[in-house]
Design a protein around this nucleic acid. Structure first.
Lengths: 197, 197, 197, 197
DNA sequence: AATGAATGAGGGTTCATTCAT
DNA sequence: CATGAATGAACCCTCATTCAT
């Protein structure tokens, strides 16, 4: 967790520092990310960085949590607004909302992707939590007769979310296409591709 | 590309060097991989390393190509042995063969995974090529009436291969489960999860 | 010397700050001692620290003086209570009193040790002064016929005090043994170890 | 232990590096000693330093061992040349020889002192070993009737060696006086200072 | 008198790469 | 073709001290 000093900062500065970190961690894996570059980008001194954060891990973990929280918030909102939607619709809608939210150059989405590829414990926990939320929705849809009862719920969620992540990565410069492809893929999973022959 | 000196080496030594590189790149991301460790592991001097390869990137790219070639060879062999199999069966069978092939300590599969996550141009090209091979098979299966004609072939392949990669990663210590889950996912995609309601 | 602001502080706070400093300097050599830790321990801000003291050296020197004063006070008291005791007895008794005094967690003795090992001018001066006090007592004992007249008084004092310091260091966790060994050493010096052969 | 690279160096360079280290560690405690200064002084690059030694500790420990070996060698030689000398004479003579040996500006003696004050395990082991050598000699002298049988041998050695160390420190610029004072102190311990009254 | 954010030089260490032998 | 010592930029991090509030 960042030190109190970080939270005492003016919002302006706090955001500047945080965004510099996001930018760095979005652009390359943790090992390659450089505190030097973050501080230069943020326009603060090295010393200041370490007044804000315990160490390089600290910013990184904090970033993961912030992004996960944002994602969860978006999802909760969408779910509340569409209480009867099935899991597929909820996934699609919240993806749309999230994409619309990140308008600026700053790429929360890209950072989110890194997290999904990250094998730190914290990232795993974040993924796990998110995954379980979706699994529960699948179970609900099974009960509602919307999804075949013998489907492995976790497998289904893994299938969708790994596709979603890597598709976002592939289309990181064209979010409309990303959403479109995600919709198509989900449809395909719903309907099946086989002819039964 | 490795320098000529590398190919002039005795097979014994050439293999030793190459395997040391694979081991290193399997164990950690490119940035963290260390030339120092590779040369120590290979039992060669640092100077020699730079007589064989231009730089760290060079070995890495070379490794990507070798592994891709191996994968393609496995796939071609499986396809030749099962000329009537559909794309799903071919994917599963060649996955099984590939998994069975890497019994030793040396982990081609793990290195292959790194490549799939890699965002270098060369890795992208390799993936692209492999992807296209599969897309063509999907098209063939459509013609054979095995797959619905309105399915987006590339999307289907992307869906399967992203799942395959990340599932391999998740179960890297339990290959039997990996293959099993891949089979289940493919089945799910073939049949569809929706009830049509 | 601490700034006036330090002496204007409430006794409570002044003591808190001073004891935090002692604790820090007892635990590690000057270079490793950290102002950060002192202020945290004392529960004051960094800014305040520099309103009390010129710098890290300043607290340190001040601490040396305070401890030296305490030692001198103990010694004077013991001497006054035992006007006829010889120098050896006075050394032993005041050592005992000093050891008994530091019962609490706060370790004046340990800090005193650091000073004895310190090579700053101020520490040298403090040692010098203390040494001279003892030398005068040796001279008095020579006049009283208790010590051989041809003994080099300063040498004798140096011999005892270096032993005392390093023995305290060796037995810093067992003060009873320290005092015992000091007594044994002094006895040995009084009687001599040679057989005259 | 230094890496092989260090021992492969030309004697010239090896000595230059080692002496730079000694100079640094003589001048200040371990924590304050700077690798940066050592490499600058030695005229090598930072990278080279770490080709020679594991880390800062490594040089330091190596230095301790080298100095201890030198001391032991001197002592053994003196002992062999004077088989009948008592422990006091052996201490004095080997001190003289050691002092004579360090003629240059390079101060092995000063570094030896640091070791004596050092509380690392290796330094403790070195002191322990040296101390035991002397204790055995005291025992021998007791058997020969040269030292009173009820004297605590270890205490006697501690008394002499702590004095020796700190006296060397006090007179680091005047070795003749150091030896003279050591002789006087030993004499005092042999004869005793008390008059028996 | 009190605060605590800001600073930047310096700490130890790693590493890919070069080059003389 | 082989060697391995040499290099220096970059790494993450700590610290005493300053200064605006």
């Amino acid at each position: 967790m960042p030190k109190q000093t970080f939270f005492n900062l003016s919002e302006d500065k706090r955001v500047r520092v945080f965004e510099a970190a996001i930018r760095e961690f979005s652009a390359m894996p943790f090992a390659e990310a450089s505190v030097n570059r973050i501080v230069k980008e943020a326009g603060i001194s090295k010393g200041s960085f370490y007044q804000y954060f315990e160490d390089k891990n600290d910013v990184y973990h904090y970033m993961i949590e912030v992004i996960a929280d944002r994602k969860a918030a978006v999802f909760n909102q969408v779910r509340d607004e569409h209480p009867d939607a099935d899991v597929f619709e909820l996934i699609l809608r919240s993806t749309e909302v999230a994409m619309a939210a990140d308008k600026g150059e700053l790429d929360y989405a890209e950072a989110g992707m890194r997290i999904d590829l990250d094998d730190s414990e914290i990232a795993a926990a974040v993924r796990q939590e998110s995954s379980e939320r979706f699994v529960r929705l699948v179970e609900r849809d099974k009960e509602r007769g919307l999804i075949k009862p013998d489907v492995d719920s976790r497998l289904l969620i893994d299938l969708i979310s790994t596709f979603s992540i890597s598709e976002l990565y592939r289309n990181r410069n064209n979010r409309a296409r990303y959403v479109e492809n995600l919709r198509a893929a989900i449809n395909l999973i719903k309907e099946g591709v086989g002819t039964g022959r």
